[in-house]
C-alpha cells in the first residue's frame, strides 16, 4: 500500500495547487459585495438601463395644444410615441422627433385586414382616397368619422386638388358647364384653416 499512498500524496498536492490557482484568478471584485451568483448587482444593472421611450406624462408639458385635442379624441388610446417614435432623447437633448406622415404609416393600423377585429375602423386603402395623404382630411390628433375636413379658403386650384375629375371627391359633371370664377362664389367653406 505504501507506494500508492505516496503516489496519492503527489496527486493531491497537484490538485491542491490547481484549485488554489482556479480560486484566486477568476474571482470577480463584486463577489464579496453581491454574493455567490451576484444577482442583485445584475438586477440593479438591468433596472438602470437607459430608456428610449419617455414617461408619457412629459409630452403635455410643452405640447399642450396638440395634447389637448388628442386627449379627448378617438385617438386618445394611441400614445404620442406610437406615431412620433421614442422621445426620451427629445426630452433629454431636444433631438427632433421625426414622424412618418405617409399613407402607409396610417395603413399599418387602418388598412382592411381579415384578421383585425370587425369593430376597428378599417378602410380598403386601394379604394379610399387615391394617393392623398390621410391627414389632408383626417386630423391625426382628433380624427372623426366622417372626417371634419379643414379647407384652405384661397384659390380655385386648391379646390381642384381634391374635387377635379378623378380626384378624391370629384364635383358633379354639370359643374364644368358653368365655369365660374371660383368655387367660393357659390360654395361656402364649412371649416377653414
Amino acid at each position: 500500500m505504501k507506494h500508492l499512498v505516496r503516489a496519492g500524496g503527489v496527486l493531491i498536492a497537484i490538485l491542491f495547487v490547481f484549485f488554489v490557482l482556479l480560486r484566486v484568478i477568476p474571482v470577480p471584485e463584486s463577489f464579496n459585495a453581491y454574493g455567490f451568483y451576484r444577482e442583485k448587482e445584475n438586477t440593479a444593472e438591468w433596472a438602470a438601463r437607459p430608456m428610449a421611450y419617455a414617461d408619457p406624462i412629459l409630452c403635455n408639458q410643452c405640447h399642450q395644444t396638440n395634447h389637448g385635442s388628442w386627449s379627448d379624441s378617438k385617438h386618445k388610446t394611441v400614445s404620442c410615441e406610437n406615431c412620433h417614435g421614442p422621445g426620451q432623447s427629445h426630452v433629454d437633448k431636444g433631438t427632433p422627433v421625426k414622424i412618418d406622415e405617409s399613407r402607409e404609416a396610417c395603413a399599418v393600423c387602418h388598412s382592411k385586414l381579415p384578421s383585425r377585429p370587425r369593430d376597428f375602423p378599417q378602410v380598403d386603402m386601394e379604394q379610399h382616397g387615391g394617393k392623398t395623404e390621410c391627414k389632408t382630411c383626417h386630423s391625426p390628433h382628433a380624427p372623426a368619422i366622417p372626417p371634419v375636413v379643414l379647407h384652405p379658403e384661397a384659390g380655385y386650384s386648391n379646390c381642384l386638388l381634391c374635387h377635379s375629375a378623378g380626384g378624391l371627391k370629384p364635383f358633379p359633371a354639370n359643374h364644368s358647364a358653368n365655369s365660374p370664377d371660383s368655387c367660393t362664389s357659390c360654395h361656402s367653406v364649412k371649416r377653414s384653416v
Partner: peptide, 14 residues
C-alpha cells in the same frame, strides 16, 4: 509519480 515499487505484493494490491 515517483513510485517504483513493482514487487509482487504491491502488484497484488494494484
Amino acid at each position: 509519480l515517483g513510485v517504483y515499487d513493482v514487487s509482487e505484493r504491491a502488484l497484488a494490491v494494484d
